[in-house]
Design a protein around this nucleic acid. Structure first.
Lengths: 226, 226
DNA sequence: AAGTGGTCTAGACCACGCA
DNA sequence: GCGTGGTCTAGACCACTTC
């Protein structure tokens, strides 16, 4: 019996073998279903998966074609920092460096799209077996926080958020930068070292939740399979 | 009528509202299908999507539970470099710096998992409107190349590969590094500048295809939505 | 207007993983 | 075992897009 993964494999091999060159319009679902002797839904599943991974481009009425300039799609896992530390076999620790109300700098206001006035500014050093792993610089919308505040010296803002304000949408970006003086001092590395920086901005349906910037210790790699 | 996206939204909202706290076992597909008045397949589609994005964990027999420590999954687009340059509204250019057979350094051999002997070593500078954008350092398995060789001064190895050895599997990783002397010279930036580095390793079903390292000009950001 | 992919249904069988 | 999710089928209707 042919499952959708078999269909996917067969389609892929036809593309690889140039039976269906890049940019080609391939037969419709009905035709393929008949050829392979399966239901149309099975072909649909196979082709949808290939479209999701960037190999095919599908449009109603226009049909399905092999992507001309394939854009590979890779999936990144974004774990909670503690999980990331423990996955490396290290002991997680955390040190709260700052936790106070303040006016966010303009770039942060701009990214959040509005001026919320005073926000809660938290700086945390995450440790892996006692060594600096990540410096977290976070601005939080005070409107989403409970009163009294959670104890951010015991549970990182990162983790408190996923447990209590879970599953918001947002965006994330990665870049390489020279370590600022304060980040370098916290991580115990030379000023200006090349560091991997993650910036994330998350939103509730109605209002901004948080903006955060993670400065990773040198040697950090973000990896995934294609 | 309730579509699978409505079901997904409803499930998400129950998680957000803590009706189904983190770690909870949620009702089975059959039960939910009945509750929402849809077919089980529709519920399955909704829950599968949520599992794919890391919100739910599903196991046969064990059932479906809300992920205790959610691992957010983000999708990265990995375009061909020329497309990336043109997407920024710049004019793409390319300069071939090196193209010769040589023995790869040990780290490259190690990543490929075997010693292939001599490989084709290609260095390319990719330009965006005349300015250095990316330096590509690539080692190619000569067995997959045609004779005579493609003209890598006209079409980048990057692009030739997606068009002719398409859709292999592999892995990719990102890091921040200090620019090496040669990369800095090619990009016209100070030595030791913090640069964003992409490393990719791709495989055919049977043999390695290529190992490549991309050094991006300062200011490069990799971004996506969550 | 017509053709294509996207989705839904009702039912069925199967594979996995727990007891 | 046996319950759960994973998948398949045959048929249907709909939404989108191009003509």
């Amino acid at each position: 019996m042919a499952g959708w993964e078999d269909i996917r494999a067969e389609v892929l091999s036809r593309i690889r073998s140039k039976a269906w060159p890049l940019g080609t319009l391939i037969p419709g679902e009905e035709a393929l279903a008949q050829e392979f002797g399966v239901a149309r839904a099975t072909v649909n599943r196979a082709l949808s998966e290939l479209a999701r991974s960037g190999v095919l481009e599908r449009k109603r009425k226009a049909g399905t074609r092999v992507a001309a300039l394939p854009v590979r799609k890779a999936t990144l896992d974004i774990p909670v920092i503690r999980a990331e530390v423990e996955a490396r076999g290290a002991v997680y620790g955390l040190r709260l460096l700052r936790c106070e109300m303040d006016a966010p700098p303009l770039p942060v206001q701009a990214r959040l799209g509005q001026d919320l006035g005073q926000m809660l500014h938290i700086e945390t050093l995450h440790l892996a077996s006692g060594r600096g792993f990540v410096v977290e610089d976070r601005w939080l919308n005070p409107a989403i926080l409970p009163n009294p505040l959670p104890d951010f010296a015991a549970i990182s803002a990162n983790e408190w958020l996923v447990a209590h304000v879970s599953f918001a949408s947002g965006d994330i970006s990665f870049a390489a930068e020279a370590a600022s003086n304060s980040a370098a001092a916290a991580l115990g590395i030379p000023q200006g070292s090349a560091v991997f920086v993650t910036e994330r901005c998350t939103w509730a349906p109605d209002a901004p939740i948080t903006w955060v910037r993670l400065v990773h210790a040198p040697g950090y790699r973000l990896s995934t399979v294609l």
